Simulated assay, not measured.
Amino acid sequence: MNLVKPVAVLLFVLAMLPAVWGASYSVMVQESGNSIVLASLEGSGLHNIELPADAVPEVRGALYLQEGNVLSLSIGSTEKAIVAYQTGTFTSKDNTWKLSINLGGPAKVSFPKSANILSISPQAFVTETDVKTIEFPEGSAEIAYQIENINLQSYLDNLDEHKFEKIVTYVVLTALFLILFAGLYFVVRRPKKVKESKTSHKNNVLKTLSNNEKKVVQILLDNNNEAKRSQIERESKIAKSSLASTLAQLENKKMVEVDKTYTTHFVKLQPWFIDL
């Protein structure tokens, strides 16, 4: 079924109704010279938008009919619609680029950040964020501009010296940190390895001893390498006669020294075993 005639009839009927419209435009100029246009429409009734010759419109929120370069729209109960299209007719290039617009409502024109604005008519302020934006309440304007090409060598020549200094400082501090970390690791780990080695040698010697001999030596190790004979007897729970035999055997092996100078006998580990 051909829908063109019913839509045309509906638009004709709507054209008889009073129209209340408001339109605003956003024009995004690309480096290639093409422009993307978004027309935001509000109101009721019938409204016509004149399109550039190369525009292929996309419409949201309205019934529409296109005849040549004229787009006729009617919005329903939402009272809002959007028309989007791309065109290359707004711009021309000689030595510089020139943008000319004459739209049916307030327009906001955005340029790439690389654009160098040379002249604006009518005069208006340029707001710069990620893009350069100029607003025209009447929707008509002529703007001359250039697209700056970034020269790599120029960019490198104009690098912020402070950034370079920060990079050098970061590298130096990182190197110092690594050297300090390596030094601390060496200092902390080396004694531990020696200690483990000594413990290993002591364990090898202890393996050659009898159970009673091991008990005596372990008590001496736990008491800063020396202890009273009575303390050894009490903690080891070895009988007096067996303890005397055990101490004699350890003396023969040159592992302990029994000091009998006083009534209370002291038993000490020999230095060679302590230093293992």
Score class of each variant (00 low, 15 high):
residue 2 N to I: 06
residue 4 V to L: 13
residue 7 V to D: 06
residue 20 V to F: 02
residue 21 W to P: 06
residue 30 Q to P: 00
residue 34 N to F: 14
residue 40 S to C: 02
residue 41 L to C: 13
residue 41 L to I: 12
residue 47 H to R: 11
residue 49 I to Q: 07
residue 51 L to R: 12
residue 54 D to E: 02
residue 56 V to N: 13
residue 58 E to Y: 09
residue 59 V to W: 01
residue 65 L to I: 05
residue 66 Q to S: 06
residue 68 G to Y: 11
residue 71 L to E: 11
residue 75 I to T: 11
residue 77 S to D: 12
residue 77 S to H: 07
residue 81 A to Y: 01
residue 85 Y to E: 09
residue 85 Y to N: 01
residue 92 S to W: 03
residue 92 S to Y: 04
residue 92 S to F: 06
residue 92 S to E: 15
residue 102 N to Q: 12
residue 104 G to R: 01
residue 106 P to I: 02
residue 107 A to H: 06
residue 109 V to S: 03
residue 111 F to P: 06
residue 113 K to A: 14
residue 115 A to R: 04
residue 121 S to E: 06
residue 124 A to K: 07
residue 127 T to G: 08
residue 128 E to D: 01
residue 128 E to T: 12
residue 130 D to F: 00
residue 133 T to H: 00
residue 147 I to Q: 01
residue 149 N to T: 15
residue 157 D to T: 04
residue 160 D to F: 02
residue 165 E to K: 15
residue 169 T to M: 07
residue 171 V to T: 08
residue 176 L to D: 10
residue 183 G to V: 14
residue 183 G to D: 12
residue 190 R to N: 00
residue 192 K to R: 13
residue 196 E to S: 10
residue 199 T to I: 15
residue 203 N to W: 03
residue 210 S to H: 03
residue 218 Q to E: 10
residue 219 I to G: 01
residue 222 D to S: 14
residue 232 I to S: 08
residue 232 I to D: 12
residue 233 E to D: 08
residue 234 R to S: 11
residue 249 Q to A: 15
residue 249 Q to E: 09
residue 265 H to G: 02
residue 265 H to T: 08
residue 267 V to I: 11
